[in-house]
Simulated assay, not measured.
Amino acid sequence: MSNNPMAGPLPDPWLAAVNVTVPISVANDLDKMQGVIKDVMTQLGCPTCHSGRDLRITIARDFVVDPEGQVQPAVVAPLTR
């Protein structure tokens, strides 16, 4: 913590929104979404609940184009189980 009285309080990490972008194939599968939420919460240090966290889940809408001109979704990492 800073000794500077003008610095203000440190931000509370619990108040910060957590953005999670998923492909439509995951968003449309409740079992996969429950796994995503569990994995996110585990990485945030609370694997047993998500109360108090602001999880903002959006469907991937971004695309990238490779050097050959092929369009791909920007989120391509598969879920591994």
Rank of each mutant, 00 (worst) to 15 (best):
D62E: 15
V64I: 13
Q72Y: 14
G45E: 01
A60P: 02
D66P: 01
E68D: 01
V36K: 05
V20G: 03
K32V: 13
D54Q: 15
A60F: 04
H50V: 14
C46S: 05
M6R: 12
V64K: 14
P13E: 15
P23T: 01
V64S: 11
G8S: 06
V20P: 09
S51Q: 15
V26G: 00
L79V: 10
G35K: 00
L44N: 15
P11L: 08
C49V: 06
V26A: 00
G8L: 00
I57T: 03
G45T: 03
P47W: 04
R53E: 06
D39H: 13
L55R: 02
G69N: 14
T58Q: 12
D29I: 10
Q43K: 04
S51A: 13
V22W: 08
G52C: 06
I24H: 08
D12Q: 12
I24Q: 02
V64P: 06
A16G: 08
Q34E: 15
G45W: 07
S25Y: 10
L79G: 07
Q72R: 08
T21Q: 04
L79T: 14
C46P: 03
V20R: 02
V65F: 00
A17D: 13
D66T: 03
T21L: 12
N4K: 12
P78M: 07
L55A: 02
C46N: 13
I59Q: 15
S51V: 11
V65I: 11
R56T: 11
N19P: 10
A7C: 07
L44H: 00
R56N: 09
M6H: 08
N28H: 04
I24Y: 03
T21E: 07
D62Q: 14
H50F: 06
D66L: 01
A60H: 09
V20D: 03
I59T: 09
V22Y: 06
N4P: 00
F63L: 01
I59Y: 12
D54R: 04
G45P: 10
V40I: 12
S25K: 07
R81Y: 10
G52V: 07
V26S: 04
I57P: 00
V40K: 02
P47Q: 04
A77G: 10
L10Q: 02
D62Y: 07
L10R: 09
C46T: 05
P78C: 12
S51M: 13
V76L: 08
R61F: 08
V65N: 06
M6G: 14
P23A: 05
Q34I: 14
I59V: 15
S2E: 03
V20E: 09
V64M: 10
P11T: 12
C49E: 09
A74S: 09
P67A: 11
S51D: 08
R81C: 08
S2N: 09
T58E: 01
A27E: 03
P5I: 11
A27L: 02
G52I: 00
H50E: 05
Q34F: 14
P13T: 08
P23F: 02
V76A: 09
L15C: 14
I57K: 02
T58A: 10
A7W: 15
L44D: 05
S2R: 05
I37G: 01
